[in-house]
Design a protein around this nucleic acid. Structure first.
Length: 919
RNA sequence: GCCCUGGUGGUGGAACUGGUAGACACGCAGGACUUAAAAUCCUGUGGUCAGCAACGGCCGUGCGGGUUCAAGUCCCGCCUGGGGCACCA
């Protein structure tokens, strides 16, 4: 084989790798371990597009590189296979999600295999496989049977809590679900079983409660947030309202502090850490109970600024609070009801994003405990029930939103910060001196925070409080295609199934439509309901919270992962995935890891040592412009002369922006066969825009097509060449030719394709050739280590260009180069490795070592600037010192010309960098 | 609205710690080989001005300021694309 026939060659080596089990990884080895993981995909029906493999290629290169560097590398792949789209597909087409999912998985697998990844497919996991979700259910029961011991700051079995209750009540274990709950050992023993279970439920890490969902009565189903658009269902446009349903939750808030602290032990980007920190949203302040005029109940507010308590001009409570009904006066009742009805149709996000100010006075007044002033209580949507106590004290002079609200409703504003408030804007400073503030007058605000908290605690009307924005995560879905909860409801108590009954299999159903009253499809199965089994299923992040552990020991039937094996592999060393998982998936898998660690099942409490975020590949959409009411399409440059409709066209029919008219006429079964065109310069020019890559926008590019046309090696290198992995960028197939040419050029260092001869020789390498090689080794090693794959590809190109110029055909140079290239272009590297006469796979070769001796230069071409502007360059030996440099530089013709006879103010010489003459 | 992130030639991008802006590619233009095409190779390619030419001047990293001998890089204020915001995964 003298010509570069990538089709034959790639197929040959893929078969060889499979057959020889080259990528099977042992769980025991003398080599150091390294774990490289990709976020596993949801196997959608649309298959892979060019955006998916970006991260996989990056991690594959890294995994192969680490293997060459002598590590035992775990690099698995699997599928996050439960999820809403498969269920929606089932509802529409009547095909069981298990079947469509399996088909999709096969399709994904085929596509992935063509790209030549080094995944150990023997370790593949699928979250929807009963052999897998048995252990998801098992871990769920561990969460159910555990609580967070605040003294120890770790999870512990609920049995130890029961033992403590029997001995001393809950004195040492404040109830996370109800801080006011207190009972003695005697009282505990007096409680009946149900009462005890209800108390324990308030402690469990997986617990049941009630929560609001998007309920769409017309569809009879619960909707995801992204299925709700402007308060109506995306499909059909039916009204959506809030409905309270029984839900499972994970008590992740108990782990808030550890999740926060753990961030300092992992190598995530600062942006990622910041996002997680914001999500956790730790704040400290005070909770204050205000008296409400004419009511015994208190109005509890949480504030981070207790120092501003004399500036409170009104209170705002969230519309969801039951307190709204209790305190609303008869005069205000109608207005409040109208307002509540309006709020009910709106999502949290809409409520926060809304610029229009809305709210309603309840008619009730709270009393400021320090100056006994009456404070009107309002209800408004900008306060969310889920944060803090669901009520705030509004201080318009210090808070922008409070200020706007006060202005809008003409509520008088009290100024407590003197000249720091000028009446046109709120000033959120902490450094002003307080005025109009009773006993705080003259005190800096920062200092007053502590003083007020102390005073509140002394008077018993408030206390110091740490709050988290993070809420406990709803852990149930009213859906079919998810893990069933291994829970039976007996006399209103949640009773776990015994371990030997796991997995609780997802039953067959006749219809995937929802059950009565917002329950999931499982509620439609008589046998299921008769057994009193939980009808909710688990959400997508259940299976994905621990999958990285299952890869280590995927066939174990006695435990989720053998402890010795997880001790060997330990943390994921490099985890590659998109930022869209920044909070959800990453926080939950971090929490699960901590729980499993606390309970002694694994030996580490952070799952991912280093996280690399790959950017999104966006689609580059193309448009055609149809003149309204006709079949005539007008080229983009002329479209403004007509009334046109804009239509997406398949990007695969467009070369750059030029439409392939013949292909367009055949498109969509000839829907546009009769189309006529108004051209410019004999071409039809399409409009272009960058959008999300999706089937509906006809801007997806299938990797299969590119692999077929250019080969997997070209495809892999081109994906990397596109730009930094972390950065989002639109896909453009145009540049792929350049990478393909590079591989062919490399090939020609080995073969003369025209004459059909092998060019290799055993001559010893010249210093120039050695310099090129070793410069490249160094560059590839450094770039690969820092995930700078685009510059590494460029370095390969430079190397091959230079070696071609030097007519290099020496084995001594080309063999190390082939090993260097193996992580990037494994197929061609494997072929050339064998052409060089080696036995066995290049996968197991040692990574070449660069030698500094070949790289040293004796001189450097220094840029010479006058006043910071580059004017010329002068070559100096690397050993040159400032005096010599200064002398030579000032004699230089160009420099002399610029200096003229002005005096030299300063001569700057940075060794190895540059020279700057300041005049 | 809040949080994160990006903006450099016609295009993707490079410039790692403030030190020669535009590496490497694509595209384009011209040329070689060829009956022709493909493939391959060579030359040029940020804008602009002047010039026979070697070479050179000015401008230039979203916009406006600032720090510095020196700013794509640091600081302040804006504009703008993308992602996330708890039931998409």
């Amino acid at each position: 084989m003298m010509e570069y026939n990538f089709k034959k060659l790639e197929q040959k080596w893929q078969q060889y790798w499979n057959h020889e089990r080259v990528y099977a990884v042992p769980n025991r080895s003398d080599k150091p371990k390294f774990y490289v993981l990709d976020m596993f995909p949801y196997p959608s029906g649309a298959g892979l597009h060019v955006g998916h493999p970006l991260g996989y290629i990056a991690s594959d290169i890294f995994a192969r590189y680490k293997r060459l560097k002598g590590f035992n590398v775990l690099h698995p792949m699997g599928y996050d296979a439960f999820g809403l789209p498969a269920e929606q597909y089932a509802i529409e087409h009547g095909i069981h999600p298990a079947i469509s999912t399996e088909n999709n998985i096969q399709n994904f697998r085929n596509q992935l295999e063509k790209i030549g990844f080094c995944f150990d497919w023997e370790r593949e996991v699928k979250t929807c496989d009963p052999k897998y979700y048995k252990w998801t259910q098992w871990i769920f029961l561990e969460l159910f049977n555990s609580f967070f011991d605040r003294q120890q700051q770790k999870a512990a079995p609920i049995t130890t809590l029961v033992a403590a209750f029997e001995k001393e009540g809950n004195a040492k274990h404040e109830c996370p679900g109800d801080a006011a709950l207190q009972f003695s050992a005697e009282e505990w023993k007096q409680f009946n079983f149900t009462a005890q279970q209800q108390i324990l439920m308030q402690y469990r890490l997986a617990y049941c409660g009630y929560g609001e969902v998007n309920w769409c009565p017309a569809l009879g189903t619960v909707l995801a947030n992204d299925e709700v658009v402007n308060g109506v269902s995306e499909r059909g446009g039916h009204p959506v309202e809030k409905k309270k349903l029984r839900q499972w939750y994970l008590r992740i808030t108990e782990y808030a502090d550890r999740l926060l602290q753990g961030l300092s032990t992992v190598d995530f980007s600062e942006a990622m850490k910041e996002m997680q920190t914001n999500w956790i949203g730790k704040s400290s302040g005070a909770e204050i109970g205000f008296d409400i005029e004419g009511h015994s109940e208190k109005l509890r507010v949480y504030t981070t600024r207790p120092d501003t308590i004399f500036g409170v001009d009104f209170m705002v409570i969230a519309p969801e609070l039951s307190l709204v009904n209790t305190i609303t006066t008869t005069e205000q009742k109608q207005a409040v009801e109208i307002y509540l009805a309006y709020v009910k149709s709106r999502s949290d996000r809409e409520r926060q994003a809304e610029k229009k100010i809305s709210g309603c006075f309840t008619g009730a007044y709270a009393i400021n405990p320090f100056n006994l002033q009456r404070i009107p209580i309002w209800v408004a949507e900008y306060v969310l029930a889920g944060y803090g106590t669901g009520a705030i004290m509004a201080v318009p002079c210090g808070d922008e939103r409070d200020f706007k609200f006060a202005q809008h409703f003409n509520i008088p504003i009290t100024n407590i910060i003197g000249s720091a408030f000028i009446g046109t804007d709120a000033n959120p400073t902490k450094d002003a001196i307080l005025t109009n503030s009773g006993f705080l007058n003259g005190m800096p605000m920062r200092q007053a925070i502590e003083v007020v908290i102390a005073e509140l605690e002394k008077k018993g009307i408030g206390k110091r409080q740490v709050n988290y924005k993070m809420r406990n995560a709803a852990f149930s879905r009213q859906r079919y295609w998810g893990e069933p909860f291994p829970i039976q409801w007996i006399d209103g108590n949640a009773i776990p199934l015994p371990e030997n009954e796991l997995p609780l299999l997802l039953p067959e159903v006749d219809t995937y439509s929802p059950g009565p009253e917002g329950e999931g499809p499982l509620a439609n199965i008589p046998e299921w309901v008769q057994r009193h089994l939980e009808t909710n299923t688990m959400p997508g992040y259940a299976g994905s919270s621990w999958y990285f552990l299952r890869y280590m020991d995927p066939y174990n039937t006695t435990t989720f992962c053998n402890r010795n094996i997880s001790d060997y592999w330990g943390q994921v060393d490099v985890y590659v995935g998109g930022t869209e998982h920044a909070v959800g998936h990453l926080l939950y898998s971090r929490m699960w890891t901590k729980v499993l660690f606390d309970l002694g099942y694994i030996g580490f409490d952070e799952p991912f040592k280093k996280l690399v975020n790959q950017g999104m590949i966006q689609g580059s959409s193309r448009f055609v412009y149809r003149i309204q009411g006709t079949q005539t399409f007008v080229s983009a440059g002329l479209k403004h002369q007509y009334e046109v409709n804009t239509l997406h066209v398949d990007v695969n029919m467009v070369d750059g922006v030029v439409l392939d008219i013949a292909a367009f006429k055949l498109w969509r079964n000839g829907e546009y066969a009769q189309a006529e065109f108004i051209l410019e310069d004999d071409k039809y020019i399409c409009g272009a825009e960058v959008e999300k890559m999706s089937k509906s926008k006809f801007n997806t590019v299938n990797p299969d097509d590119l692999v077929a046309k250019y080969g997997a090696d070209t495809f892999r290198m081109y994906e990397m060449f596109l730009g930094p992995v972390e950065q989002s960028k639109p896909w453009d197939t145009k540049g792929i030719e350049g990478v393909h040419r590079f591989i062919k050029k490399l090939w020609r260092l080995f073969f003369d394709e025209v004459k059909g001869t092998l060019l290799l020789n055993e001559e010893s390498a010249t210093p120039q050739q050695l310099k090129v090689l070793h410069k490249t080794i160094k560059k590839i090693e450094e770039d690969t280590e820092r995930f700078s794959f685009n510059t590494a590809v460029a370095a390969f190109m430079v190397c091959v260009n230079e070696l071609s110029d030097l007519h290099t055909h020496n084995i001594a140079i080309l063999e190390p180069l082939v090993v260097l290239l193996a992580p990037y272009a494994p197929h061609v590297a494997e072929e050339l490795w064998h052409v060089l006469g080696n036995q066995g796979s290049v996968v197991n070769a040692p990574f070449p070592v660069w030698n500094a001796e070949y790289l040293t230069d004796s001189a450097k071409e220094y840029p010479v600037s006058i006043n910071g502007k580059l004017r010329t360059t002068i070559s100096f030996p690397l050993t040159a010192i400032q005096e010599e440099v200064e002398q030579v530089t000032l004699q230089n013709e160009v420099v002399k010309k610029w200096i003229d006879d002005k005096p030299i103010k300063k001569f700057i010489f940075v060794k190895g960098k540059m020279i700057n003459v300041v005049i």
